[in-house]
Design a binder for these strands. Structure first.
Length: 198
DNA sequence: GGAATGATTCTCT
DNA sequence: GAGAATCATTCCG
């Protein structure tokens, strides 16, 4: 069942991030459906968060989708070769987003393998990283700004993860953010092996 | 126009 | 654990 829009309109991005754990990211590309359980996320807390692309209210061509109403995708190219997938949260002009860092393949695993590494195997290395899962799901820049109840891209309810099964840590790869790099904004499902780092 | 820089991943060693 | 790959975006002039 596709998640209702209200889910994304809350202003507390950390709460939405924790609630995203256990949900399904689904894509349909060339009529091939792939689905993965969200196992790891990071929250980016708007204008006050130095790690957020929209820090200080920076409104640019890239960040503008974060300034729109929650419930859409923010996809951008990182390091010139990896697409990273984010969920935009909160109301217009409150640029908060959640980076999905890892998923566990649920269906379409064979398709994901072909997109990633045909000679590989379906294991944690297939989708345990933000750049890996977008490639496996066929997500790219054309999905930027797309609503998360679209025919090609949507998020479904699946598992309910209790607070006791969520591990909280600091975010990865944002040392440029100074003290904000120490914020406890990374969450993953305890005991799940489809996580980028433990 | 030009230079710097990543919300990363893969391949060696 | 170190180094390369690789380019859109951003900021400065």
């Amino acid at each position: 069942m596709v998640i209702a829009k209200d889910f994304y309109l809350r202003t507390d991005v950390v709460s939405v991030a924790r609630d995203l754990l256990g949900k399904l990211i689904c894509t349909r590309v060339n009529n091939e459906v792939t689905k993965g359980i969200i196992t790891e996320v990071e929250a980016y807390n708007g204008v006050q968060d130095r790690a957020c692309h929209a820090y200080g209210g920076r409104l640019t061509g890239r960040t503008q989708v974060m300034f729109e109403e929650g419930g859409i995708a923010y996809v951008y190219l990182c390091y010139g070769m990896h697409h990273l997938f984010n969920v935009v949260v909160s109301h217009p002009h409150d640029p908060k987003a959640i980076l999905v860092r890892s998923i566990e393949p649920l269906s379409g695993g064979g398709v994901m393998l072909m997109r990633r590494k045909p000679s590989g195997r379906i294991d944690r290395s297939l989708t345990n990283g933000p750049g890996k899962l977008t490639k496996a799901l066929g997500i790219n820049i054309s999905n930027n700004g797309m609503a998360l109840d679209s025919e090609e891209l949507w998020i479904e309810n699946h598992l309910n993860i209790s607070d006791n099964d969520i591990v909280t840590t600091t975010r990865i790869g944002i040392s440029y953010a100074g003290e904000d790099a120490l914020l406890p904004y990374r969450f993953y499902i305890k005991g799940n092996e489809f996580v980028s780092r433990y």
